[in-house]
């Protein structure tokens, strides 16, 4: 139990360095994961933003799918944007999916890059008494159109669009906490109970 945490960040493509830097600021050891055997000994995994088709194809090519599903069965996993798409059970376009979370996702739900936006968001799980909104950056972002079974909504836009959810030790955000200097989401992820 006293062993320090070691977090992996899937580094097939995308904004993995941003996550690594934040974990390093938080004093947590974090490493780049490019091959399935590198998952051994990790206490949690982040699947970063990037292009979900690229990440999915590389994951299939390098035999990541089964090892990732097995890893996620016992450890916390957090997907941001492309990572959220990759973790979903259902997505509107055909592409490789881990199918972990009981959510349905629609890609590029807010339009093209010119429609990308940032907004202050109230996130229930981050508020311990005080209500400081979280600066959420959405880039060609997906939305969650359906939340089923044990998955619960943890953040939505004012129009009710679901943009973050949790199912036990699995966390997904349509936006990019790794592009901000607010580390509360990373701390929240580290607090999720893992291990068998």
């Amino acid at each position: 139990m006293e062993k320090p945490l070691k977090i992996g960040v899937l580094a097939l493509q995308g904004a993995f360095i941003e996550h690594l830097k934040i974990f390093s600021h938080l004093g947590v050891s974090a490493v780049e994961i490019r091959l399935p055997k590198q998952l051994d000994g990790l206490d949690g995994l982040v699947i970063p933003g990037g292009e979900s088709t690229t990440i999915g194809k590389l994951a299939v090519m390098y035999n990541f799918m089964e090892p990732l599903i097995e890893f996620a069965a016992v450890n916390p996993v957090w997907g941001t944007c492309a990572g959220m798409i990759f973790m979903a059970k259902k997505v509107d376009l055909a592409q490789p999916l881990l199918g972990l979370m009981n959510i349905t996702v629609r890609r590029n739900a807010f339009g093209r890059q010119v429609d990308s936006f940032q907004v202050n968001l109230n996130v229930s799980v981050l508020n311990d008494g005080e209500t400081k909104p979280f600066p959420a950056v959405f880039i060609r972002a997906p939305e969650i159109v359906e939340v089923e079974k044990d998955a619960v909504v943890i953040a939505e836009l004012s129009d009710g669009t679901v943009v973050a959810a949790q199912e036990g030790k699995w966390l997904v955000t349509a936006f990019h906490p790794e592009l901000t200097d607010d580390y509360r989401f990373h701390c929240y992820f580290l607090s999720l109970p893992g291990g068998a």
């Binding site: 580094a11 995308g14 990308s116 880039i139």
Partner: peptide
């Protein structure tokens, strides 16, 4: 609405952010 006072499009964060998502690609 009130809970999201400002929705900002086209900011430097959002523009540079897309490039960050392309990294390693």
């Amino acid at each position: 609405n009130n809970s999201e006072k400002e929705v900002e499009v086209g900011s430097a964060t959002v523009k540079r952010g897309l490039a960050q998502m392309l990294k390693g690609g």
